[in-house]
């Protein structure tokens, strides 16, 4: 039995990951902002074999409550083996270009709130010398593109932050996992037309579980995105700035 904390537990990717843990009989604590959705997820996980499921309603942008809610979740679990941070939004890029306020709000949801949560978690786990912290970033964070650079910058910043944290915690026993999914068919991407590069949440969930077990540092999910992003990163900026991809 493992003790699993999930923030943004109503996300499709998070829910698929939670189901794998429920089937293993793990103990879960869930945090999300929509109470009725959260309750539907928790109820389902109980029926699928979770040892127990506790749930906490919190908006990730409610910074003042981070410590209190994480402490309560930690207590309900009796410790944390794996904390997964999954919440996020796909910003309206055009709106963020016109409105600095919208841009800041999106940055808060997709970057600052995550950094705050990770900081609290790291400080909880470091003295215990054990546990994993996994954060879902994105391949979009690898390169700035006109079509979604607010989202990309937020995810990229989280990735950089996690690299530093991993460096800091190296040797402490605490594992830091950066999860970079490619295109995933979830409510977040409902309006996109789908092609062969798209993966289902359950494929991503299996990748997350296995990366956590194997204590990987950074994973692209599915794995082929590593190659794609290597190539994309190789394109010189002087050429990249002319492209629309």
């Amino acid at each position: 039995m493992k003790k699993i904390l999930i923030i943004g537990a109503t996300s499709a990717i998070a829910e698929a990951t939670a189901r794998l843990h429920a089937e293993d009989g793990d103990r879960l604590a869930l945090i999300a902002r929509n109470e009725s959705h959260l309750e539907a997820v928790a109820q389902d996980l109980r029926q699928r074999g979770a040892e127990s499921v506790s749930s906490f309603v919190m908006d990730a942008n409610d910074f003042a409550r981070h410590e209190e809610v994480l402490a309560a979740a930690d207590e309900s679990l009796g410790g944390i083996d794996f904390a997964l941070i999954a919440h996020g939004t796909l910003p309206d890029q055009e709106l963020c270009e016109r409105s600095a306020q919208s841009m800041r709000d999106e940055f808060s949801t997709n970057c600052t709130s995550t950094l705050s949560l990770v900081t609290v978690l790291a400080n909880m786990l470091e003295p215990r010398g054990a546990g994993s912290i996994g954060v879902i970033t994105s391949v979009a964070g690898d390169r700035g593109r006109a079509s979604n650079y607010v989202y990309g910058a937020a995810k990229g910043a989280v990735g950089l932050f996690l690299g530093g944290l991993r460096n800091r915690l190296h040797g402490s026993g605490v594992h830091v996992l950066t999860i970079k999914p490619g295109f995933v068919d979830t409510p977040m991407t409902a309006d996109f037309s789908k092609g062969p590069l798209w993966a289902t949440p359950s494929v991503i969930a299996k990748g997350i579980r296995s990366a956590q077990k194997r204590r990987r540092d950074v994973v692209h999910l599915p794995g082929f995105w590593l190659m794609i992003m290597l190539l994309i990163r190789l394109i010189p900026e002087r050429i990249f700035k002319r492209l629309s991809i």
Binding site: A12, A40, V41, Q43, Q47, R48, P187
Partner: peptide
């Protein structure tokens, strides 16, 4: 298909 939760068993 996204509404695939168990409610009670």
């Amino acid at each position: 298909r996204g509404m695939d939760r168990v409610i009670d068993f």
